[in-house]
Design a protein around this nucleic acid. Structure first.
Length: 136
DNA sequence: GCCAACGTTGGC
DNA sequence: GCCAACGTTGGC
């Protein structure tokens, strides 16, 4: 099983909305690196849900329920979506500032490739973030 | 609202 | 195929 991080602007699609919907397809990815990550996702993979622009923190955990398929919002076959569902909210959100301040997370894509909207997370990073969220 | 970083486009 | 110009993302 792999770990990932997906970003969303709360003003466009917040964690709260995601929980209300119970499931969504992750659309709007128009970047090849992010697209490749979507394609690499397997059912059951876990994802951090990150709020960009407002909050700038990891707020919850989601799970892949359906692997990549043609993006239903476009005819362009370059683009895919995955289905994801919320798993649980973090007890304490982990902010970008906290992540930047922890040297164990200095290599996180969130820090190094800040504009990538779908990024891989290593097992070590996953565990560290969960610790910071008071979830261990 | 500004601006840095980075991806993409298009001229040559 | 290089690289400048441009557009977009996202932190502050």
């Amino acid at each position: 099983m792999a770990y990932w991080l997906i970003k969303s602007e709360p003003s466009k699609y917040s964690w709260e909305q995601f929980v209300k919907d119970k499931k969504t397809f992750w659309d709007g990815v128009r970047n090849y690196a992010a697209r490749n990550n979507l394609r690499a996702m397997k059912k059951g993979d876990q994802l951090f849900y990150y709020h960009s622009n407002e909050g700038t923190e990891i707020v919850g955990i989601a799970e892949v329920v359906k692997e990549a398929y043609q993006d239903p919002t476009t005819d362009d076959t370059n683009w895919v979506v995955v289905d994801v569902k919320p798993v649980k909210k973090l007890k304490k959100p982990v902010s970008l500032a906290q992540i930047k301040g922890d040297k164990r997370l200095a290599d996180m894509a969130l820090v190094k490739l800040s504009r990538l909207s779908v990024q891989p997370v290593t097992t070590g990073e996953w565990i560290t973030v969960l610790e910071m969220a008071d979830m261990q």
